[in-house]
């Protein structure tokens, strides 16, 4: 049974999940499962979104350069926050992998073997882990336990510039192996290979969204701070000082409003001083 997420019943936009998928046939099951709408007006890379669920998907085309470019494009188009999860989903070749099985790439090597990545929090209880070798041309795999794809390394190289390494994932479904030729793969086959893994992807997404939410809590600047920024002129350094201090202040006084500290202030420096005073007075009560 698929979760309610697919029916659009969750109303909050965050956390954002950004999908980078090479082919339309690979993306189709995701587009329909999450009810993503095509965004008109951009022709380079088609983008699909469901703002209600916070999902964005870009179709990159084949190859690591396309994957890197599409990732960057989606980051700027969607304004993905640093707590967004980035997922590269697609098919991959294997030597010994079972056709249709889903893997999480935990080691990804680029075509020239100059770059190696270890992306993503590992979900070994839900999905098997594998090494992915990204190549420039489709090539049969000659080593057990290794998958061949054409996008993962380009995607990871760039996605880790927008979110932390642990929120960047590459999931691959085995489409061909030493017993089944890659020439037999057509759009219909790809569609069903991915479509058959939706339930497993949904379980992964549950965990990924939890991680992303926690990162959001850690990184998000509270709305109240934005309000204070509007009232006084803060330099960049002072803005950082205010954010840091307000976080501490909120831990100590979770039920008080920041307006208490701003009321008497005439300048940005006054606001910071007020918070410092409130924090210095503390009695270090741990118990």
């Amino acid at each position: 049974m698929v979760s309610d997420r697919s029916k659009g019943e969750v109303s909050n936009v965050e956390p954002t999940v950004c999908w980078v998928v090479a082919l339309k046939s690979e993306a189709k099951p995701i587009i329909s499962y999450f009810e993503l709408d095509h965004q008109s007006g951009n022709n380079i890379f088609p983008i699909y979104r469901n703002d209600k669920l916070g999902h964005s998907l870009i179709i990159s085309g084949v190859g690591q350069i396309n994957a890197a470019a599409a990732t960057t494009y989606l980051a700027s188009e969607s304004g993905a926050p640093p707590w967004a999860a980035w997922i590269n989903l697609g098919i991959a070749g294997s030597m010994d992998g079972e056709i249709g099985k889903l893997y999480q790439g935990v080691k990804v090597i680029n075509p020239t073997k100059e770059k190696v990545f270890f992306p993503g929090y590992r979900f070994s209880k839900i999905v098997s882990l594998a090494e992915i070798q990204t190549l420039d041309y489709p090539t049969p795999v000659k080593k057990n336990g290794v998958l061949h794809d054409m996008e993962a390394s380009g995607f990871i190289d760039f996605a880790t510039r927008f979110s932390c390494n642990e929120l960047v994932f590459s999931f691959k479904v085995v489409s061909d192996n030493s017993e089944q030729d890659m020439k037999l793969i057509d759009k219909m086959v790809v569609n069903s290979l991915i479509g058959n893994r939706l339930q497993q992807l949904d379980a992964l997404l549950d965990k990924i969204i939890t991680l992303s939410k926690r990162e959001k809590q850690r990184l998000q600047i509270p709305d109240e701070v934005e309000e204070v920024f509007k009232q006084f002129h803060f330099s960049v350094t002072m803005k950082n000082q205010l954010i840091q201090r307000l976080r501490k202040w909120k831990i100590q006084f979770p039920n008080r409003s920041i307006s208490d500290l701003v009321k008497e202030a005439k300048t940005a420096a006054d606001v910071i001083r007020n918070i410092d005073d409130a924090l210095t007075d503390l009695k270090f009560d741990w118990t």
Partner: peptide, 13 residues
């Protein structure tokens, strides 16, 4: 290659 790289997140790891 894997330890202490740019953009790794200690807390999640």
């Amino acid at each position: 290659e894997i330890f202490n790289k740019r953009s790794q997140n200690f807390r999640i790891q």
